[in-house]
Structure formats: C-alpha cells, structure tokens
Simulated assay, not measured.
Amino acid sequence: MSKNPKIAVFGGGSWATAIVKMLCENLEQVGWYMRNQNAVDYIKENEHNPNYLSSAEFNVDQLFLSSDINEMVRYADILIFAIPSAFVKVELDKITEELSSKIVFSAIKGIIPETGLIVGEHFNKMHNVPLENIGVITGPCHAEEVAMERLSYLTIASKDEEIAKVMSKYLSSNYIKTKISDDIIGTEYAAMLKNIYAMAAGMAHGLGYGDNFQAVLMSNSIREMKRFIKKVHKMKRNINNSAYLGDLLVTGYSVFSRNRMFGNMIGKGYTVKSAMMEMSMIAEGYYASKSAYLLNEKNNINTPIIDAVYQILYLNKNPKTVFKNLTNLID
C-alpha cells in the first residue's frame, strides 16, 4: 500500500455521504462514486447531497466525483463500498477493472441476496480479493449524527492490522473516535444481524409493548447474536464490545434507525409494500432477515427473534400473534 493512498467511496446514500464527510477531514481529495449523474452534477454546483444528509456541506475542490464506476476503481487504491446490499451485485457487475489488487472496505450492513454471502466473503469468492485486503467499517454510528458532528465511534476491522490502522487514521477526527479489530467476519455479521433485531424492537413498539419488554428483547438479541456469530465463525471475541452490543443498542433504540422505523410501521399494521413506499431509505433488515433465516436452516441455531421477524415479513404471519408466541420463547 502506498504511503498516501487514494480512497474512494461507492454509494450515494446517507452512510456513504457521512463517510465522505469523515474522510474530507483528513484527505486533500476523496473519490466519490454515485450512479446518478444528476446527483453528481447537483453536488458540484450546490456542495451538498440533494437526497441525503443535505445539511452536510462539502468543499467540492476536495471531491473527485464520478458516475462511472470503472473510472473510480481505476482512481482509488482503497475502495469503500456503502451501497445497500440489495443493489451491490448490480453495481459490481458493471466493473470490468481488476479488483484483486485493491484494498476493499465494506460499510454495508447486510448480506448479498444473490449469493447469501456477507460482503467481505462476496468480494473474496466472486472477485478474488484476498481476505487480508478486505476490511469492515462498522458502528455504533448513525450517519445523521456524523452530519451534525456529534461524537461518534467506529470500529475498523481487518486481518491486516496496518490496513486497519491506516483506515482508522483517515476516518478519525475531533468528533469521530475509532478502534481496530481483527474480526472481519464477526463484525460484518453483527452489522447485518443488529438490523433484524432493530426491526423486532420497532415491531414491538408498534404493537404497544413497553420499555420493560424492549429491555428483555435487546438482552435476548445480543445472546442470540452471540450464538449465531459463534456458529458461523468461531474465534475469541467479546460480544459486549461496541462493534456488537453498542451497534445493536443504537440501532434498536435510536430515532434515526430506519430499521426500527420500518419495524414500527409493520407493528402498527402497514404491509411490507406500503412501509417500503412510505420510507425513502432502504431498511437493510428486511433483506437480512431472509438471508439470516436461510443461513440458519443450514446451521440449526436457536434464533427465535430472527425467526419471528422472518415469519412476519416473508410468511405474512400476524405480528400480534407472532410476538405473543415470542414472549414465551425469550426471558
């Protein structure tokens, strides 16, 4: 890796916008790929994203913007992907440039639906990116609070400690604190699973359950997460660290959590289709719940909360009935 690597962010949503903002605190130039050329043109003229985190202003002289994904891959040494998991494969299929020599970071909190793989595994198996060149950027951190420059925390995971340290340095600022980890598989699974549990928390709220039940639900969620991650990738980790428990709590409780919001709408009686139409952002937990359920069919883990969310979202089971049954399965 070069001493001053070029870094590019891929994605046009709120989390991609927040990461670009963080990088701009430390780099003279940041690459930013957005598939929508109109959004690129708007940012160049108005210095903020028209659709997400519009309060975050940019010095456009710092940005190398493009709607050509291959141009951005050629430009950068380190690629940070912050595209919703449901659309990752469509975007990656556009790439004709070689990815195997690049360092790739996933800031995506989900599983690739077409392959059933977490993002790091997808890059490794489908694009020949070595595992030591893959990293994960995870929370607890909401994009909206980054835009407001509220103190936030990130975990940067990579098998290569030096790569993790480099990314940590470029994302750190007076309002962003970072720590590094070598658990790229576990942190990425945790980032995916916490969205499912946040949906469950939202459903419970929409159904009228109170804070007492929410506390029990979150307590059971972290234990369920621990069982799941231990089964799919066994290594020594402290599930109470910020990358796991912290990220789960902020996603389960925050007013900024789109997954909690989506679940709340389902609990109040919205259909999946109507809830999706109401929200302008992707709720990753919807796709993650199916992927996690299918993975669990192979691994046979005790996951009553994941099962409950899947039954409601994909089997059209009545949320009230499902949660009444769930109250007898958790303690």
Results as ranks from 00 to 15, higher is better:
Tyr170Lys: 05
Ser242Tyr: 08
Asn195Glu: 03
Ala201His: 02
Met265Asp: 02
Ala200Lys: 04
Ser172His: 05
Gly186Met: 07
Ala243Ile: 13
Ser221Val: 09
Asn259Ala: 04
Ser254Arg: 05
Ala198Asn: 06
His233Ser: 15
Gly208Leu: 08
Phe256Asp: 01
Asn174Lys: 10
Gly208Ala: 05
Met218Glu: 13
Glu188Asn: 05
Met167Ile: 10
Tyr189Arg: 04
Lys236Gly: 11
Ile176Tyr: 00
Lys194Pro: 05
Ser254Thr: 02
Ile180Trp: 08
Lys234Ile: 07
Tyr209Arg: 07
Leu249Lys: 04
Ser257Gly: 08
Leu207Asn: 12
Gly252His: 12
Leu207Ile: 09
Met203Phe: 01
Asn241Val: 06
Asp183Cys: 13
Ser172Gln: 04
Leu248Val: 13
Val166Cys: 08
Asn259Leu: 01
Val166Met: 06
Lys236Asp: 15
Asn259Gln: 04
Ile239Gln: 07
Phe228Asp: 02
Ile266Trp: 00
Asn259Val: 00
Ile196His: 07
Ala191Leu: 12
Asp211Leu: 14
Leu217Asn: 06
Lys169Gln: 10
Asn174His: 08
Asn241His: 09
Gly246Tyr: 14
Ser254Cys: 02
Asn195Trp: 04
Met167Lys: 09
Tyr197Leu: 06
Gly186Lys: 07
Met218Gly: 03
Lys179Glu: 13
Asp183Lys: 15
Thr251Gly: 03
Gly202Tyr: 00
Ile229Lys: 04
Tyr175Arg: 00
Lys194Arg: 10
Tyr170Glu: 10
Ile222Asn: 10
Met265Arg: 01
Tyr244Thr: 11
Leu193Arg: 08
Gly206Met: 00
Tyr197Glu: 03
Ala204Thr: 03
Met199Asn: 02
Tyr209Glu: 12
Ile266Asp: 00
Ser173Pro: 02
Ala201Gln: 06
Lys169Arg: 13
Asp247Cys: 13
Gln214Ala: 11
Met203Cys: 09
Asn264Val: 00
Ile222His: 13
Ile229Ser: 02
Asn195Leu: 05
Thr178Arg: 01
Asp182Val: 08
Lys234Asp: 15
Thr187Gly: 02
Ile222Tyr: 13
Asn238Ala: 14
Arg258Ile: 01
Ala215Phe: 15
Lys230Asp: 15
Lys169Pro: 02
Thr178Asp: 01
Ser219Arg: 12
Gly210Ala: 14
Ser172Trp: 03
Ile266Leu: 08
Arg258Tyr: 02
Met192Ile: 13
Ala198Trp: 05
Lys194His: 11
Arg223Phe: 09
